[in-house]
Nucleic acid binder design. Sequence first.
DNA 1: CTGGATCCTCCTAGATACTG
DNA 2: CAGTATCTAGGAGGATCCAG
Lengths: 133, 133
Amino acid sequence: MATTTAAQRREQARVEYDAFIRSCPTNQLLDRISDKWVSLVVCALTTGSMRYSDLTRKIAGVSPKMLTQTLRSLERDGIVTRTVTPSVPVRVDYELTPLGTSLSHLLAAVKDWAELHIEQVNNARDHYDASPS
Amino acid sequence: MATTTAAQRREQARVEYDAFIRSCPTNQLLDRISDKWVSLVVCALTTGSMRYSDLTRKIAGVSPKMLTQTLRSLERDGIVTRTVTPSVPVRVDYELTPLGTSLSHLLAAVKDWAELHIEQVNNARDHYDASPS
DNA sequence: CTGGATCCTCCTAGATACTG
DNA sequence: CAGTATCTAGGAGGATCCAG
């Protein structure tokens, strides 16, 4: 016994690291905003509250399932509020919370960086792709 | 003919929207930094250049494949430089470029926001989970 | 109108094993 | 030491149907 293989040791490290990463707020946040639809939803809501169907139209191409799923997780995290008006037919409005607004500011910062540096990245990419082998 | 189904129209919208999203710098950047390993690699390199094996150890749990893949894409984007020293055995160092350093600052901003607001998110989450259905 | 539930497919992370 | 090649399993996301 006591012969821990490399694979076993690596597995162990992986498990520990997984735990570390999950407990890391930064990675939690990164996971959240990196979601394909989250940034679009938050962006769409910065201009004010919107109905479900409005979002469907504004974020063309999203499936009902993903939109609902995204909104639910954002609601759970306190980023958006969900308001149901029991009329006929039902009307549901979504709106950013203060926390959500704060997040939108962070996203704006990300956006600024992106627009400021995207050219450099594209240049680097072209150069890399053009370089011999 | 001319009977475009809802699915077809949606598919069309999806394709157009995909093109739009891909051309959006913000989403390109978001895709990049949201990669599970990118933030960790960039973070690891902020303290200075590191060898491939150093990174393997520092970012315990990453497979050679993913590390290489991550480093290649970062190199392509001009975020890191790859320096090969043809000694025996070979030695390869990775280092952040100025652009990479700039990116690390953005990541730091994300980190700050995360640490500042993670508690609110967790509270909201607990509250949401505890609320009756 | 606003979703929930189900099925199904594709993509990719990761394990494993091999090479210069 | 620093990767590359190959394979596979799991999960994310879409289509579809159904319900309050």
